[in-house]
Amino acid sequence: MSCPGFGELNIPSSRAFWDDCDEDEFENITPAEKLELKFEAEWADSKTPFESDLLVVIEGSQISHFGTSVLAKDTKRVCSIPAKSSSLHWNPENKQLLAILEDDLTMSGEVTELLLPFAKVAKKVVTLTLKAKVEFKSEEIQLYSDDIAIVRGVGATEKGITELEAPNFIAGVAAGVATWRDQQELPISSFVIYTDKIPLDSTAAQPVLKLLQSVGVACTSSYIPPRKDSSYLYM
């Protein structure tokens, strides 16, 4: 018994494709907007990337409040980054530059290009990616069921940090910056933390703060999350 059409590949002709399109459709296409850093007034006249002793790139979902609360204290906001509520901050006392990035893979390539000039002149770079614990893949996942967080390094040499194992991986701006630094044979330390609470609360923030402090990142020792609106539940 034969099967008509089985295995047959039908490719539409290019003529049919173009015949179905109106010429004015291409004339009305709006060019994609070029992404750029929006500098604060203080930095508007000097947009040249400045050298930092340490560039910290922290990326994750709903990370803005945590980043500005524990890392951006005593810093000056340099500019906003075109990825949701992302921003760049500068601490003149310890020459620490901080990029707080809301996870947005749709523009990670363009945003990486915007931050590379700062990554090129930084003496040291640390990247940290925050993910939900359910994203961590392991044949022995039951061993981590009671852990608040799972901490892994990507090519990191810090003592006590386990290397991130396949099939887990990181993406986004943090991965882009880290890859560029590694290819240029410049100092880079990359980490990923799988946490059971996003956005972070006071307890879930502790492993993150501990890691940051251990690699020399200036930050507070505790985190108080923003107060939530009433849930309208009454006892």
Results as ranks from 00 to 15, higher is better:
residue 67 G to Y: 02
residue 11 I to Y: 07
residue 57 V to C: 13
residue 223 Y to T: 06
residue 167 P to C: 04
residue 101 L to F: 02
residue 50 F to S: 01
residue 189 S to P: 00
residue 33 E to K: 04
residue 107 M to H: 15
residue 185 E to D: 02
residue 155 G to F: 09
residue 32 A to Q: 10
residue 109 G to A: 11
residue 215 V to I: 14
residue 157 T to Y: 07
residue 55 L to M: 14
residue 69 S to P: 01
residue 143 L to C: 00
residue 137 K to E: 06
residue 77 R to K: 15
residue 134 V to H: 02
residue 36 E to Y: 03
residue 185 E to H: 12
residue 198 I to E: 12
residue 51 E to Y: 10
residue 116 L to P: 03
residue 24 D to V: 05
residue 2 S to D: 14
residue 27 E to T: 04
residue 152 R to F: 00
residue 67 G to H: 01
residue 9 L to D: 10
residue 173 V to Y: 04
residue 179 T to A: 06
residue 188 I to W: 09
residue 101 L to G: 00
residue 231 S to I: 08
residue 85 S to N: 11
residue 145 S to G: 00
residue 12 P to L: 15
residue 150 I to V: 08
residue 188 I to E: 13
residue 145 S to D: 01
residue 206 Q to H: 10
residue 128 L to R: 03
residue 72 A to Q: 04
residue 49 P to G: 08
residue 153 G to C: 02
residue 22 D to M: 03
residue 89 H to D: 05
residue 4 P to C: 12
residue 179 T to C: 03
residue 60 G to L: 00
residue 90 W to F: 11
residue 7 G to M: 11
residue 5 G to Q: 11
residue 62 Q to I: 03
residue 73 K to V: 08
residue 59 E to H: 06
residue 227 R to M: 13
residue 111 V to G: 09
residue 134 V to I: 06
residue 134 V to F: 11
residue 204 A to I: 03
residue 53 D to N: 15
residue 12 P to G: 06
residue 74 D to V: 12
residue 106 T to H: 01
residue 52 S to A: 15
residue 111 V to F: 01
residue 21 C to E: 05
residue 162 T to W: 01
residue 188 I to F: 11
residue 228 K to Y: 02
residue 105 L to V: 12
residue 57 V to I: 15
